[in-house]
Design a protein around this nucleic acid. Structure first.
Lengths: 245, 245
DNA sequence: AGCTACGATAGAACAACGTTCGATACGACG
DNA sequence: CGTCGTATCGAACGTTGTTCTATCGTAGCT
């Protein structure tokens, strides 16, 4: 009934009399392999059977470490958020709080670009223990140096997180197999969409026509940076602290 | 092999010799019931078996109308986005393009508040036919009246959509059963979280302590409005068109 | 050393799901 | 009355998360 508390359990293997092995896991190895599975082939590739095979053990063994797939996902997410948090804490402190905020948000977004599946599960658990809350705290600390009310600070961080998540969800959209197979790369895929848009009636879709060239081959990071910049500008204006101009 | 093209197929019923019924669906009824299922019990409640039972027919019949669950989800989403689009088109045109943008974004967000499951699936298909692209067009049109480059317009709409989606994902988080059962309402749930936060070390979590009172019992719509306002102010500044001040 | 209690592993089975198959009913047209 | 295309349905298949029950291996005790 109890859960493994000692994380010092090393990955060791012992031999069974009849030659069959008995795998020996650890919370660390389970999480690491789960994340590897997610990284390599996306969310749908993470199944208990696939994970068990990767660990060289049985399916039911995983249930010794996690009570459900939900918990597995939560723990795996928290695991990588831990590394993001470390990246953010390594960031050099800047003079301008808003510059700090931007740097943190970009670090977070970069991590999601590397791991698109994060976009969907990120912010699922605001458990008291766990790295999400610590990340939230770190994102909020720069706002303490801005001239804002508590409510404005709360809303400001929510806004920044919202922009990150909003862009991340876009990113997390599983490409429709063709590009996963490598048969079509992302640029061609975008280009095909753009081409279809160009054939729409310009009178009925004036805006789509206006931006189709920008959409075609656009960079996700650029898109995110622009969105982030808009909220940061709004925030700077709200704080009344000019850029110096 | 063909798909139903005539949407005039009425919901009629005929009697089987042995007394068993044969249900008669239509694309409309399938989508309507699918949406009803989603509305009543969330995304996980929409299964082919549950939907078939609701339609009074067999499971396989649904496959006459949709080729997969993915397509069912896409069509259902598009179905309700159609109503959102209608709401947005009914909006009175305002003098200020940014006021238009705000009104549209709020209408969209309201729809997601009513249907939290929308947050996850919204923006899944940017198919050329379909209401998502039309919605995107409508959201973009106000930017045509702003003094911006095409790229800025593209990024502006992406930013607004990002804020909506970002807040929506927060909303779409399935409450952990307790509040679904009605045993605990949302306010108590938030309050419990807030209480846990208050017990954290203030030195380690200064920001969390600063905003915990705001978090406790906060309103999601307020949160969204604030986030939206930040990007809109940023946008207004970018367009160089002052509010009049 | 032998015994025991518990930490940890695993195969088999279960229920639910998306999906496919083959059979069959119905209405329209000849 | 037979035929064809539309539409429906029960049954089955494969995969998934999860549970049950049996077992192994080691640490700790006598």
């Amino acid at each position: 009934m109890a859960r493994p508390q000692s994380r010092t359990a090393e990955a060791r293997r012992s031999r069974h009399p009849d030659g069959r092995r008995r795998a020996s896991h650890s919370m660390e190895s389970v999480l690491t392999e789960a994340v590897a599975l997610l990284d390599e082939a996306g969310a749908q590739a993470l199944t208990f059977r696939a994970l068990a095979q990767r660990l060289g053990g049985g399916v039911a063994s995983i249930y010794w470490y996690v009570a459900s797939k939900e918990e597995l996902l939560d723990r795996a997410t928290d695991h990588v958020i831990g590394t993001v948090l470390a990246d953010i804490e390594r960031l050099p402190a800047l003079d301008d709080p808003i510059d700090d905020l931007r740097a943190m948000a970009l670090t977070l977004f970069d991590a999601i670009v590397d791991r698109p599946w994060l976009g969907a599960y990120f912010m699922r658990e605001t458990d008291v223990q766990g790295n999400s809350l610590r990340l939230y705290e770190k994102l909020g600390e720069p706002t303490l140096r801005l001239d804002l009310t508590a409510r404005q600070r709360f809303h400001a961080v929510s806004a920044v997180v919202g922009v990150v998540v909003g862009s991340a969800v876009d990113l997390g959209q599983e490409p429709p197999q063709e590009v996963l197979d490598g048969a079509v790369n992302r640029e061609d895929f975008l280009h095909r969409y753009a081409q279809a848009w160009r054939e729409l009636d310009p009178a009925e879709f004036p805006f789509v026509h206006e931006i189709v060239d920008e959409f075609d081959g656009h960079d996700d990071v650029d898109q995110f940076r622009s969105a982030l910049e808009l909220t940061l500008t709004g925030l700077r204006l709200q704080a009344g602290t000019g850029t110096g101009a």
